[in-house]
């Protein structure tokens, strides 16, 4: 690694440290001071802050044209994937594509694809209070998928296992985060009862989404990973 890129890495590392060690605790403290009605604003601030290191790192590294193109394509595929499934209304394979991007191109690409994909998706279909939550949740699954791939929990040679992981991720992680958003925006009191009610109401939707992602993973993880590997060689890009 050259000196210059080390320097850049240091810079983005500094930004990450500042965010994680100072800004996020500060936001927690302020949120606590303001009381539980302000949970939404506090949590959104924290989510944006936790995304800052990823964006800062990407910016400071001055990405190459090919890296930009790959991320843009994977995001656009995420957004447009529903158009490919016109005969299956309400089938949303987005999570699977984000996870596969993370698997093939590493944590940063996974995170950016998830979060930017959701941002654009909302730009097209309408922004709402849920936007930051979706960006955060899908960014994290892209990020996480790359680690699960490295420790072989996700493996394109075992589509069934990938499908199970995809299902669990959608129901237990993405679903919970998005339902928390509903709790914070709609419920007057954050009590055990409200939380359980909203999670329970959200469960059918989350399970449907989980099934979609599991099916997509099952059918596509092998062919798509093959394609992405070919592209990695053709573009000469190893990891973003």
């Amino acid at each position: 690694m050259s000196n210059e890129s080390l320097k850049k890495d240091n810079k983005s590392l500094c930004i990450s440290l500042v965010v994680i060690l100072i800004l996020i605790p500060a936001a927690f403290a302020i949120g606590n001071y303001l009381g539980d009605r302000k949970m939404y604003i506090t949590s959104v601030v924290i989510m944006f802050l936790s995304m800052v290191p990823f964006f800062a790192n990407f910016e400071s590294r001055k990405p190459q044209a090919r890296e930009l193109v790959i991320i843009a394509i994977m995001c656009a595929l995420t957004v447009a994937s529903r158009a490919a499934l016109v005969w299956l209304p309400n089938f949303k394979p987005m999570g699977a594509i984000v996870m596969m991007t993370g698997m093939a191109f590493g944590p940063q690409a996974g995170f950016l694809t998830g979060s930017l994909g959701m941002l654009i998706s909302n730009m097209i279909f309408g922004q709402g209070p849920w936007t930051p939550w979706q960006m955060f949740a899908y960014g994290l699954i892209g990020f996480g998928a790359s680690f699960l791939y490295k420790v072989k929990i996700l493996d394109e040679k075992k589509p069934l296992k990938c499908a199970v992981v995809g299902f669990v991720t959608m129901v237990a992680f993405v679903g919970i985060i998005l339902d928390t958003c509903s709790v914070f925006t709609m419920a007057a009191y954050i009590t055990k009862e409200t939380i359980w009610t909203i999670y329970l109401f959200g469960l059918p939707v989350n399970i449907t989404q989980g099934i979609c992602v599991a099916l997509t993973m099952f059918f596509l993880v092998k062919p798509i990973m093959e394609k992405l590997m070919r592209i990695k060689i053709k573009y000469g890009v190893l990891e973003i």
Partner: peptide
């Protein structure tokens, strides 16, 4: 860079559809 990626995505989405 991020905003450039965003414009690129916005071009690609209708294309992909």
């Amino acid at each position: 860079s991020i905003s450039l990626v965003l414009t690129m995505i916005l071009r690609l989405v209708p294309n992909f559809q």
